[in-house]
């Protein structure tokens, strides 16, 4: 894919401006010189949220601010920044709110630990119940012929 010119970009931003209140999703044609950068760019903009909309990623958001932020990310990629540097920059500017994937830090640890801890507790409880019931089954010799389902 050829590199898009700056004027095209302006056109996209203008279009986004005009579509400010639309519910249509942004469809942004490739703007990156190499497929590798393209993949990284798409992954990055899908991981950031639009600051103005409900639950839309930067990739899908049609609003002006999102187009602006997409351009910023694109410029950083072209300037040779790593994904981590770009993420750090975005977080320093907009806070963790911008990330669809909450970071694992002290304030969010509870969220990441909840599923594992619950699962562990659940399995331990289940094993305890099974042990008790297995002991009952061992003393209960009557075998009912139970049907399926």
């Amino acid at each position: 894919m050829p590199l898009r010119t700056a004027s095209l970009f302006m056109a996209a931003i203008m279009a986004a401006l005009l579509l400010g209140t639309s519910v249509a999703y942004a469809i942004a044609p490739e703007q990156m010189p190499t497929p590798q950068l393209e993949t990284r760019y798409l992954a990055l903009i899908q991981g950031f949220r639009c600051m103005q909309c409900q639950d839309e990623s930067l990739a899908d958001s049609p609003v002006n601010l999102a187009a602006d932020m997409r351009r910023q990310i694109r410029d950083m990629l072209l300037a040779g920044k790593t994904d981590q540097q770009i993420r750090d920059f975005m977080v320093s500017r907009y806070g963790y709110f911008i990330l669809f994937k909450p970071p694992f830090v002290l304030k969010t640890a509870w969220l990441w630990l909840t599923p594992g801890v619950l699962l562990l507790v659940g399995v331990l409880v289940a094993l305890r119940v099974i042990r008790q019931r297995a002991a009952l089954a061992a003393t209960d010799l009557e075998d009912n012929d139970l049907t399926d389902a």
Binding site: D55, Y96, F97, F100, K101, P102, L111
Partner: peptide, 22 residues
Amino acid sequence: SSALNLGKLSVGPPYFNPTFLL
């Protein structure tokens, strides 16, 4: 998170997909 003053947070597919699969 915002009720406990732990800051604003977004939770999207990158959280739900792996934890749900667990």
